[in-house]
Simulated assay, not measured.
Amino acid sequence: MSASQAAESAEVCLLDSSYGPEAASLLFRAYRNDPTFRWLMDASRPGYDHRLRTTLRELLRNHIAEHRPALGLVQNDRLIGIALVAPPERRLEVTESWGWRLRMLLGAGRRATRRYLEFHEAVMACVPTGPHHLLPLLGVLPDYQGRGYGERLLAALHDWCAQDSQSHGIVLDTGNQQYLEFYRRNGYREIGEVAVGPVREHVFFHPNPQPLAGVSG
């Protein structure tokens, strides 16, 4: 079986609330070498892994608590990719939660919390007006990257978001240079850029993705 055939055979599903621990582990592996998070969590100081785990866990915890959807990519009963989705309807932003801030201060520290809050505010300032789907976190396990699994997850995500006729499109961001062409190739255009220390965070928008295939739930 070719890499593209293997990616096509992976199942995409809407995850239930039990996905937390497995998703937290996946996101840590997917984002550990991400330049944006390395600066936000200050990888130059001891304790980087702990600060990153705390941040991803708390972002995920808040996502689940707000009953926001997550799409999972599964192969051979293993979760290999995930996309957290913030639908257009207004709900409590993670940075507006005092509980989240307190847990971040205790787990990740004051500097990392402040950096993340400033980063989040700057990215959100680039988001166009109107109803949109936002992708706060999107990751594929490192061993499966570059083999078509990212495209498989993104296509299914577009199918799922396209079912909401009120949404104007999808917004996501990345500071990883190797992903820029990937998003452009999949129909995204850049709508903003944010300085994250030495990193340039690119904010992308995909207008009104159209459904291509069903997603199992």
Rank of each mutant, 00 (worst) to 15 (best):
D16A: 10
L73Q: 01
P198M: 04
R147Q: 15
M41Q: 02
I82M: 06
C161S: 05
H63Q: 14
A213Q: 12
L40D: 00
E89H: 15
R103E: 10
P128L: 03
P142S: 14
R103K: 15
L92C: 12
P21Y: 07
P35A: 01
G214D: 14
E58V: 10
V215W: 05
P69E: 03
Y31S: 00
R185E: 05
E118V: 02
R57I: 11
S165N: 08
H168D: 09
Q5V: 06
L180C: 05
D143Q: 15
G130Q: 06
V85N: 04
Q163T: 12
R184Q: 13
R51I: 08
V85C: 11
R184K: 15
G20M: 13
G81N: 08
G72W: 06
P128H: 04
S2Y: 04
R110E: 03
G175L: 01
G150L: 05
G130P: 09
G109I: 08
M41W: 01
L154T: 02
G81M: 04
P131S: 14
P21A: 09
A10S: 06
A30K: 03
V199Y: 02
P136Q: 08
L40K: 01
T174P: 12
W39M: 04
D34Y: 09
S17C: 12
I64A: 11
G169A: 05
Y31R: 01
Q178L: 11
G99N: 13
N76D: 14
R32H: 02
R61E: 11
A24M: 02
Q163S: 10
L15R: 12
V127C: 06
G150A: 04
P87Q: 11
W100C: 10
Q75L: 10
A213L: 09
D34G: 08
V196I: 05
Y116N: 09
L117R: 12
S216M: 05
A213N: 07
R114P: 11
F204V: 04
F204T: 06
E66P: 08
R90F: 14
P35S: 02
N186C: 03
E22A: 13
Q177A: 13
L73M: 01
R90N: 08
L56E: 07
M41C: 14
L106K: 15
T55A: 11
D159Q: 12
R152K: 03
S9M: 08
G72N: 08
A23K: 03
L137E: 11
S167C: 06
P87S: 09
G214E: 15
Q5C: 05
H67E: 15
M124W: 10
G217H: 05
E11C: 03
C13Y: 10
Q163G: 14
D143E: 15
Q210V: 11
T36N: 01
P209I: 02
R110K: 11
P207R: 09
L56P: 00
G217L: 04
Y188K: 06
E121T: 09
D34M: 03
F205A: 07
